[in-house]
Design a protein around this nucleic acid. Structure first.
Length: 234
DNA sequence: GTCCAGGGCCGTT
DNA sequence: AACGGCCATGGA
């Protein structure tokens, strides 16, 4: 069975409201005259299979050293970068990944703005060509930093879909296409980026607070439309 | 002590 | 194409 994603969107919105997603320290970037979107690029890499609380510690460390910007990450030594982001885990590979993406943008585009001004799919290809940036990280950067209309699929999304009983399989692209096809029919082109952003944000909130590994079904907003809930009541 | 978190890569079947 | 091991920290 397939559930209308526009309906899903509205149910979640009624319960959670609009989520202001991807926290950014605006005041830090105002003060330092740095591009706040770069914080999202960094966060997207640091959060790979990692609890956000640990990412926050790493981001705080970067801010306290005033190196949460493109040019600083390009300049800082790999050893110091590793030490600074250590709380976020996998610090050696993540330091390398931050370096790689930063140096790529710096050498090819000078700054984030020039890079993000390109076409969505051109940016996506370039991000995916870098080691350590897969579909989810690339799309998170595109959606939340570059404000491009592309839907982010993550482990939470897959878990929720499986429990709802939508047989979309495990393919990233299939799931992404499904959401984009459905939502683009129900919302205007101009608001799609915001809708995708809210949708993903609300799915994450749902997964964290209700649709956990051990789900809390009896107070879940999707209780009435969920196969997992129905089966557990049998 | 065990489990898990807003993945991705690489080697083996 | 699919799967398993690996990367690492800190909170529950």
């Amino acid at each position: 069975m397939k559930i209308d994603t526009a309906k899903l969107y509205n149910i979640l919105k009624d319960r959670f409201g609009k989520q202001k997603w991807w926290p950014i320290d605006e005041s830090y970037h105002r003060k330092n005259k740095t591009d706040p979107r770069f914080e999202i690029v960094v966060g997207a890499i640091l959060t790979q299979n990692t609890a956000w609380a640990n990412v926050e510690k790493a981001l705080e460390n970067l801010k306290s050293k005033n190196i949460l910007d493109l040019d600083s990450i390009c300049k800082v030594s790999i050893e110091e970068l590793e030490r600074t982001i250590k709380p976020s885990g996998f610090f050696k590979q993540k330091a390398r990944r931050l370096k790689d993406v930063s140096l790529y943008i710096k050498s090819n585009y000078k700054n984030l703005n020039n890079f993000f001004n390109k076409n969505l799919y051109e940016i996506r290809e370039e991000l995916l060509s870098l080691n350590g940036i897969g579909y989810e990280t690339a799309d998170s950067i595109l959606l939340y930093a570059a404000n491009k209309p592309i839907f982010v699929v993550d482990a939470y999304t897959k878990r929720i879909l499986n429990r709802l009983g939508m047989n979309l399989g495990d393919s990233y692209k299939d799931i992404q296409d499904y959401f984009q096809n459905e939502l683009s029919r129900n919302f205007s082109k101009e608001e799609l980026a915001k809708v995708y952003a809210n949708m993903h944000a609300m799915l994450v909130i749902l997964a964290k607070s209700y649709c956990k590994k051990k789900p809390i079904c009896n107070i879940c907003p999707l209780e009435n439309i969920c196969d997992f809930r129905k089966n557990s009541l049998k």
